[in-house]
Design a protein around this nucleic acid. Structure first.
Lengths: 103, 103
DNA sequence: ACAATTAGTCAGAAAAATATGACTACACAA
DNA sequence: TTGTGTAGTCATATTTTTCTGACTAATTGT
C-alpha cells in the first residue's frame, strides 16, 4: 500500500524559490543594501551590525550561486571586489517596491 | 570611542519583515496551500511530505500570530478547525502572482 | 463501550545554521 | 620590511531549528 502523502511536490513555485534563496539571517539585508548599488565585503561587515566574516562570506557565496548577485573584481586602486545585482536580482526591484507600499 | 558599526538599523523594511514571517521550513508551503482556500491541520500533515505534527503546529501558530492566517472553529460534523488567509495574507496574493510571471 | 478522527502538546534528540578566533594571501604605501 | 587594507578560509563551538515518539482530549461513528 502506498502512503496517502504523495501528489503535491511542485517545488517549481517561484515565490517559494525566492523565499528559499533569500532565507537566512543576513541575506535579506545584503540584498537590500545591494539595491542601492555595488556592495563590498568589508563594507557590509561594518554596515550590518552583529554580522561576522564567516556568515557574510557564506551568504554572499550563496546569493552568487543562486544568481541574484554578480561578483566582479574591480581593477582600481585599491584592487577590490564588488557584488552587484544580477539581471534576475534587478527584476525583483519592482516587487520590493510594491511590498513597500503595503501598509 | 564609538564603533563605526552603527546607523543602519532600519528594521522597518516591509520586504524584510515579510521574509521574516515566512521564514522556516514549512511556512511558505502552508501559505501557498492556503492561497487555494481554507486548510486544516491533518490535511496539511498528509499533503506536505516530510513534515511533522510539531513543526506544522508551530508554523501555524506563528503564521496566525503574525496575522497572515486566521484560525477558526467550524461547527460542522465533524467539528474541525480551519486556517484561512487573513486580509493581510490576501493582500500578498498579487505579489505571489507577479512572482509567478517572472521566469 | 470501543475505535476512529479531530487537533494538538511535551520532552528530549538530532540536524542545521550561525558565531568565534586564528590564520592566509595579495596589493600597496612608507 | 613593516604595516594597512583588501577579501577571505578553516576548525571548532554555540545556538537555533527541526524531528521523533509518546501522550492528551474532545467529538463522533458503530
Amino acid at each position: 500500500m502506498t502512503t496517502q502523502k504523495d501528489s503535491n511536490t511542485d517545488e517549481t513555485c517561484p515565490a517559494q524559490a525566492l523565499l528559499k534563496t533569500l532565507a537566512g539571517k543576513w541575506k535579506p539585508e545584503i540584498f537590500r543594501l545591494a539595491l542601492n548599488g555595488p556592495v563590498r565585503f568589508n563594507t557590509l561587515l561594518r554596515q550590518i551590525e552583529g554580522s561576522n566574516k564567516q556568515s557574510l562570506a557564506v551568504a554572499l557565496k550563496e546569493l552568487e550561486a543562486s544568481k541574484l548577485l554578480n561578483k566582479e573584481i574591480v581593477n582600481e586602486k585599491p584592487l577590490h571586489i564588488e557584488y552587484t545585482l544580477s539581471a534576475t536580482g534587478q527584476s525583483l526591484i519592482p516587487i520590493f517596491r510594491q511590498l513597500e507600499t503595503l501598509q
